[in-house]
């Protein structure tokens, strides 16, 4: 039992941190520009594919650095030449623009890299166990991923709270016009934030590619969960996104680990239901992939501003 708890916790945290890497960029872009970037997960996918292609040339570590930069650059271009022009037509146009962009990126990826998964793997030496507990190995790569994610969180916090750029960004969040009147180049700031957010998604892709699978469907499968994280955490709240990511990661892994059905739980509370019924016989494990969306619905009903959100969505 103890081993399940330990490994589920580790796995849950790892998955949660990956979600956070993805959603931090999204929530940053949203809070700053009011744009719900539907193509965010597509940038995550691009990060994985770029790293795969570059990794074959320059190795894993340089790719870890270069791929997010490239994705970030691409994101900045998208903002400068696409989003900025669409912006004049209001939020719906922006939403539709990013929606279309997601499709374009999906199709391009399939054209360039094919429709099936590519063999993007971490370097062999990182597949060795970092430690072995109860006969289960925990690979070095997983340790590295946790380290990168934590480092990224700290760097992000430092950037936003302790630097001049961070101050400008925080000011532009609430008083965009005022920041502009003070002589700062707000469009350039927007471009930077959008590019930076995309770069974070790209970084998540570089790491998520070997961890999960690098295939054209990776954006579609993770996309909705990232939105759940942003809504549950509270629109525009970085800390909220952090908590929500970990919460979803842990809930999902623990639901798989717990060997119980709905009936088992109800019966434990003294209700008498059929343990093999159509609905009551459903096991928690099979509900696991649904949990983020159940959480989303509950949050929207009972706490629409999310865990840490300041504004009503």
């Amino acid at each position: 039992m103890l081993e399940i708890v330990i490994f589920s916790t580790l796995n849950g945290i790892l998955y949660g941190l990956l979600l956070f890497m993805l959603s931090s960029g999204l929530t940053l872009i949203f809070s700053m520009m009011g744009v719900l970037n539907f193509a965010h997960a597509s940038f995550y996918m691009l990060g994985a594919y770029f790293a795969y292609t570059m990794g074959m040339e320059v190795g894993f570590w340089p790719a870890l650095l270069l791929a997010p930069i490239l994705v970030g650059g691409l994101g900045a271009m998208v903002e400068k030449f696409g989003l900025r022009r669409v912006h004049e037509n209001g939020h719906v146009a922006e939403l539709l623009f990013t929606f279309g962009l997601a499709y374009v990126i999906d199709e391009l990826v399939q054209l360039i890299w094919g429709t099936v998964a590519v063999a993007y793997r971490e370097p062999d030496y990182m597949r060795e166990p970092l430690f072995t507990l109860f006969g289960t190995d925990y690979s070095i790569f997983r340790g590295v991923v946790i380290l990168i994610a934590v480092f990224m969180f700290i760097a992000l916090w430092f950037l936003l709270k302790k630097t001049r750029v961070g101050m400008m960004i925080r000011a532009a969040l609430t008083h965009g016009n005022m920041v502009g009147h003070l002589g700062h180049n707000v469009p350039r700031l927007f471009m930077g934030v959008f590019g930076f957010g995309c770069a974070l998604a790209g970084l998540a892709g570089v790491i998520g590619g070997p961890l999960l699978a690098t295939e054209p469907g990776m954006a579609v499968t993770l996309g909705p969960i990232v939105f759940v994280v942003v809504v549950v955490g509270g629109m525009g709240s970085l800390i909220g996104a952090f908590y929500a990511s970990l919460l979803i990661g842990l809930i999902q892994t623990f639901f798989v680990a717990i060997d119980a059905s709905i009936a088992d739980i109800l019966n434990a509370f003294g209700m008498n239901v059929d343990p093999y019924g159509e609905v009551t016989g459903i096991t928690l494990a099979s509900l696991a992939p649904m949990t983020p969306f159940i959480l989303l619905v509950l949050i929207l009903i009972f706490r629409p501003r999310g865990l840490m959100g300041e504004l009503e969505p």
Binding site: S8, T136, T253, A288
Partner: peptide
């Protein structure tokens, strides 16, 4: 587990282990 939905099988593997 659901068809073609699971990306991360590690929780299942811990259980098997």
């Amino acid at each position: 587990h659901p068809l073609a939905k699971v990306k991360d099988f590690t929780p299942y593997v811990s259980k098997i282990q």
